[in-house]
């Protein structure tokens, strides 16, 4: 999936300019990091791609489709094509690991056979195959993060968005998680990871987009 921002601005109702004049083009199969200080607009940018928020100016094209042309009813179908790992919308602790990961499939109406296969494949990829019956509460922080990743990729999305996926993990676990994203990228998934862990980002050697107070100040070089 390719994403193109053309002079995108987002002004919140409070008057705060979260993003202004942001332009970039993420090509099909590309992997990039989004960095910047907290409040620089990383999350807002991700939310615009997910259509959680709508831009106030400019144009966002996803596979050539202008998101402004998509009505309210198209939003769920748009989201099904995007896998997300968001900090604040994590796991549901009233159900097993399996059912957490299966949620995107159930929502889009997959049958049980397929759901079982795909969930196990996703859990296998993140190395949690044996733990599908457990409650996520019983797993460590790093494992919980990987459940979130499994849930994000179970639908075989063409785009993977991750907002601070290594937020509270130690360096070793963080690079494990990043390597996971890299693996998904290798099989053709477009990946965009927001992170403020500059050292880790630099080590990954991918394209880096840097936001500063809502503006794109760096695009391309390794941070």
């Amino acid at each position: 999936m390719e994403i193109e921002f053309q002079r995108v601005g987002k002004k919140y109702e409070s008057g705060h300019d979260a993003l202004s004049q942001v332009s970039f083009h993420l090509r099909q199969g590309e992997m990039a990091f989004l960095t910047g200080h907290s409040g620089a607009g990383k999350s807002t940018l991700m939310k615009l791609i997910m259509m959680i928020e709508r831009q106030t100016t400019g144009q966002i094209l996803v596979d050539g489709v202008d998101l402004r042309t998509l009505g309210k009813h198209a939003i769920p179908y748009h989201r099904r094509r995007v896998g997300v790992v968001f900090q604040n919308h994590q796991l549901l602790f009233d159900r097993s690991v399996f059912h957490n990961v299966a949620l995107p499939l159930q929502v889009s109406g997959a049958d049980d056979d397929q759901t079982g296969k795909r969930v196990r494949a996703a859990l296998d990829k993140v190395g949690l195959l044996g733990k599908e019956k457990l409650n996520p509460m019983a797993l460590s922080g790093g494992e919980q993060q990987r459940i979130g990743i499994a849930r994000a990729v179970v639908n075989k999305p063409q785009l993977l968005l991750a907002d601070e996926p290594t937020g509270n993990l130690d360096p070793r676990l963080s690079s494990e998680i990043m390597n996971l994203f890299q693996e998904f990228n290798r099989v053709g998934v477009t990946v965009l990871v927001a992170s403020h862990d500059l050292a880790l980002v630099a080590r990954m050697r991918h394209r880096v987009l840097t936001l500063n107070q809502g503006r794109m100040v760096n695009d391309g070089g390794f941070a």
């Binding site: 997910m50 997300v84 919308h89 949620l103 995107p104 929502v107 639908n155």
Partner: peptide, 15 residues
Amino acid sequence: DEVLVMKLVGATNSY
């Protein structure tokens, strides 16, 4: 929380 996660992974309101 469940409603929010469902919306995030693309559940329609009717679902």
